[in-house]
Write a protein that binds this DNA or RNA. Sequence first.
DNA 1: ACCACTAAATGAATGCCATTCATTTAGCAA
DNA 2: TTGCTAAATGAATGGCATTCATTTAGTGGT
Lengths: 233, 233
Amino acid sequence: MPAAARQNIESPADTRDAAAPPKRRAGRPAAAVLDQAVITSAALRLIGKSGYDGLTMAALARSLDVAPSALYNHVASKRDVLVLVEDHLAALVDVSAFGSEPWDEAVRRWAWSYRDVFSKHTPLIPVIAVLPVTDAPQTLAMYETVSAGLRGAGFPEERIISSIVALESFIFGSAFDVTAPADIFDPGSMAESTPNFTSAVQSLAEQGHERPADVAFSLGLEALISGLGALRK
Amino acid sequence: MPAAARQNIESPADTRDAAAPPKRRAGRPAAAVLDQAVITSAALRLIGKSGYDGLTMAALARSLDVAPSALYNHVASKRDVLVLVEDHLAALVDVSAFGSEPWDEAVRRWAWSYRDVFSKHTPLIPVIAVLPVTDAPQTLAMYETVSAGLRGAGFPEERIISSIVALESFIFGSAFDVTAPADIFDPGSMAESTPNFTSAVQSLAEQGHERPADVAFSLGLEALISGLGALRK
DNA sequence: ACCACTAAATGAATGCCATTCATTTAGCAA
DNA sequence: TTGCTAAATGAATGGCATTCATTTAGTGGT
């Protein structure tokens, strides 16, 4: 299966229609049905419709009107499918402000965009966080842009990667936070034994923020931006 | 499916009791074998030995010399087992510096300890991050201590929870980072097309830090501490 | 024009998995 | 003594990712 090697994610393709044409028995098709781009966009469609629980190799194959085993001619494992999806999403993260805006504003827009994209795809985070950059070219391209931006802003060379990692860690953690239920901090019957926590929760609730996760994200992000910025040359 | 191959719980791979005990047929035991504490510690032992991939309901039952279905008398689902484990770990996080040290030093110790505990248990993070506090009393106790500490340090009431969430998001993200492979940032064949990133990686590597993840964590944590601290009353 | 080779499909099989359920029985309360 | 219930069993269900032998349509070489 030499063709199953990863890399290079192209743009999405067609929308497969549901009308089932005459089913061939086996053998080489008139034209190859599958490739990594087709698999990636089918996976994204499936995730959008059924969530990550619905993303199974069987369901993915079904959505492409293909046998599950056929996928393995193009992908070595389900994890590979997740990597393809991840790299596709990385291209959606907005890095456009690097080069046109001051560094801190560029970081701000990048971080919000990054969090927003992956808050809808939190099951990918454990995959991304330990994924060698080589396997994800779009992700690598994002890092290149951010690195260049920080260097241009006067970040010392040896602190650029650490700064990105710190920001990214915060972003990933915050992406989970977005998906938490609204009442996650309701102490319920334990309220009496946790007075400080309970009143802090109450006090935040009284502020009536629409999305409390945004408040925490803004707070942390601004702290990181000013803290990291203070260490520039 | 052949019933013979389905379940062999009488596997000799038993760590608990080398002497084969007389196996009862069914019915109520002389004394109940299982409860949540027993299940929790067996799960921790199993995770320590085989990792989270090895934590299956079947393996857990086997380690307790019990049928898999017996677990469901004490736990509603595998997720429940994970919650039990999570709450056990929360009790290991060091909050002792709150009350005996200045707030920033207390936060520092808490954060490092929190990260260290969960960096060995990253599969729990997607569970914790959306878990209502009511379901995890030890975790709630931790929040109470931290809340009290921040209040004592002059944090405005309505910013306490957001500050904790920001710190916790950073901690969770950083816990993943600890488990990343050492060469995660090796650009490989893409080095030429990513000069800024590549030289930043190179420059960090030349510093020769033993654990690069610790550098990023320290950098981000100190930024958060000073940024959040600046907003006190 | 033939032929060999190979990429890309099939469908069956493997060995997992979590969870459900009818059944059994020990021990306690009445 | 009777009857109820908690806590166990073992079988069954319907998933899951992955592997493999097999098939066949094109393609490149002669």
